[in-house]
Simulated assay, not measured.
Amino acid sequence: MTGFQAKLERFESLAAECDLIAKRSDGSNRELYLRARRHYRYLANEVRALIASFDLVGFSRTALHRALTTSDRVQSERRKRARLADEGRIEINRE
């Protein structure tokens, strides 16, 4: 993930540099640097969206894993308590 973050920072930096150069340029050079700035901003937005998609996928997998693990633990604990109650080793209050 740090590689993508570095790319994002680099594209944002290049866009800012092109903007500064365009302000100091005139004529065709200005248009060239403005076009380069738009391109670097586009790339930065694409990388930002890519990073966001990784974060969403990671969150979904983590949340799903947690839910499944919790569910398995709860069911396992219930089965264990039911077995112990059947054996008469514990009492279950069902109020």
Rank of each mutant, 00 (worst) to 15 (best):
I21M: 01
A22R: 00
K23L: 12
S25W: 01
D26R: 08
D26L: 13
G27I: 02
S28C: 01
S28R: 08
S28F: 04
N29W: 01
N29V: 05
R30C: 02
R30A: 02
R30N: 02
L32Y: 10
Y33E: 09
L34V: 02
R35I: 00
R37N: 04
R38Y: 02
R38C: 00
H39T: 07
Y40T: 00
R41K: 10
R41M: 12
L43D: 06
L43I: 04
A44E: 00
A44S: 03
N45M: 13
E46D: 05
E46K: 06
V47W: 07
V47R: 03
A49V: 02
A49E: 12
A49Y: 05
L50G: 10
L50I: 02
I51K: 00
A52E: 15
A52F: 11
A52C: 09
A52R: 15
A52S: 15
S53E: 12
F54A: 13
F54Y: 11
D55W: 02
V57R: 09
G58L: 06
G58F: 05
F59V: 04
F59T: 04
F59Y: 14
R61C: 02
T62Y: 10
L64S: 07
H65P: 06
H65E: 13
A67L: 15
A67S: 15
L68S: 08
L68F: 08
T69V: 03
T69P: 00
T70D: 10
T70M: 13
T70K: 11
S71D: 09
S71E: 14
S71K: 08
D72F: 14
D72T: 07
R73W: 12
R73K: 08
R73C: 04
V74F: 06
Q75S: 08
S76G: 14
E77S: 14
R78Q: 15
R79E: 14
R79Y: 10
K80C: 15
R81L: 14
R81C: 14
R81D: 11
R83W: 15
R83H: 15
A85R: 11
A85P: 13
